[in-house]
């Protein structure tokens, strides 16, 4: 597992039915591109978050594929319509097979 990886999410705790809310997510991650070489000239292997998804009550909100040019600590800000009370589930997939998850509940009414 890569070091110092920590997912963070900023989401409202409550919303009106059908309201469009702003979601902010960030995961601290070194995002080693695989293009760099160490001092001895050996290639440093790629180690990035390659996929990020957000689901609301099991329904896909966003599904992102990341490539090696994405910056360190990838940050995503997007909007979602909240039709009812439920859980937002955020998932990050690491090159090394690790999966990081975060869940936020949003209450309607």
């Amino acid at each position: 597992m890569a070091e110092g990886v920590k997912p963070r999410v900023k989401a409202p705790k409550s919303a009106a039915a059908g309201e469009v809310v702003v979601l902010k997510t960030l995961i601290s991650h070194q995002m080693e591109s695989g293009q760099r070489k160490d001092k001895a000239g050996n290639k440093i292997p790629r180690s990035i978050i390659n996929r990020f998804t957000c689901e609301f009550n099991g329904k896909s909100v966003i599904d992102v594929t990341m490539e090696s040019a994405i910056s360190t600590n990838p940050y995503f800000e997007f909007e979602a319509t909240i039709p009812e009370t439920g859980d937002l589930k955020f998932t990050w997939y690491d090159d090394d097979g690790s999966v990081y998850e975060e869940t936020k509940s949003v209450k309607v009414g």
Binding site: G4, K6, R8, K10, K24, L26, S28, N73, Y75
Partner: peptide
């Protein structure tokens, strides 16, 4: 503070 990348260093 959520958007401020410097806060990651502060947390560390």
């Amino acid at each position: 503070d959520f958007d401020n990348p410097g806060m990651l260093a502060v947390e560390a």
